[in-house]
């Protein structure tokens, strides 16, 4: 157990980096995922097709493949980064956005069609109907699944540790090497710091869900 206390500085640094990775990727994924969902319901067939293809491919391939693409294939195509963090953020947000797109789409489908008809009949354009009427209602109904996806994102960010990014899991590996006699406690420490992010997220979901619920 002492190893956890002894290594608090490393844990703390890893914790902050994991938090950073998850927060930045989460924000990007929320934006991109919402745009993908909007494309999926748009009247333009090409946008619908692109969104559907993206979600199908990305959602159904392992995250590790996404990391390989971002960390190994992109640089070969001429997209180079100073830090592996950037590749990790690209991989995590590209991967997570596919799940967010599906969740938001299900939320869009849960908004009664009369809401869109009423909006169209007062003269709103498609983009206004979507941004002012449909998405605000859709996003409220999908808060619980969105938080689930974000919790998964926090845990998925540990894959970055295998791609030379020193986040919580990366430090975990390092500490396990340094303290071969206390590997179990090292990993318990890692788990505790993950829980520090994910458990509050779950409570946040509960709070937000009650706060934004809309009565019909």
């Amino acid at each position: 157990m002492d190893v956890i206390i002894e290594s608090l500085p490393q844990y703390w640094d890893g914790f902050l980096r994991t938090l950073f990775l998850a927060a930045v990727s989460g924000i990007i994924a929320l934006v991109v995922g919402t745009l993908l969902a909007a494309a999926r319901v748009s009247p333009v067939a090409a946008l619908r097709g692109f969104s559907m293809a993206y979600v199908e491919v990305v959602r159904n391939t392992p995250l590790t493949i996404a990391f390989f693409f971002a960390a190994v294939v992109l640089p070969r195509l001429g997209v180079t980064f100073q830090q592996f963090e950037v590749a990790a953020i690209i991989a995590l947000s590209a991967y997570t956005s596919a799940f967010i797109a599906e969740a938001v789409r299900s939320g869009v489908n849960s908004v009664p069609v009369g809401q869109a008809e009423a909006a169209r009949s007062i003269g709103m354009k498609f983009s206004q109907v979507l941004s002012l009427i449909i998405l605000p209602q859709a996003l409220r109904t999908v808060v619980p699944p969105l938080i689930n996806i974000l919790i998964a994102l926090v845990k998925n960010s540990s894959v970055a540790g295998a791609f030379f990014v020193l986040e919580l899991f990366g430090y975990g590996k390092q500490l396990a090497n340094d303290h071969g006699d206390a590997v179990m406690w090292v990993l318990v420490g890692v788990a505790i710091f993950y829980l520090l992010i994910t458990v509050p997220l779950g409570y946040l979901a509960h709070l937000v869900e009650r706060k934004v619920a809309i009565a019909r």
Partner: peptide
Amino acid sequence: MVFQSFNLFAH
């Protein structure tokens, strides 16, 4: 347009 089911914006 006025609808049978009102369709007021719920939010």
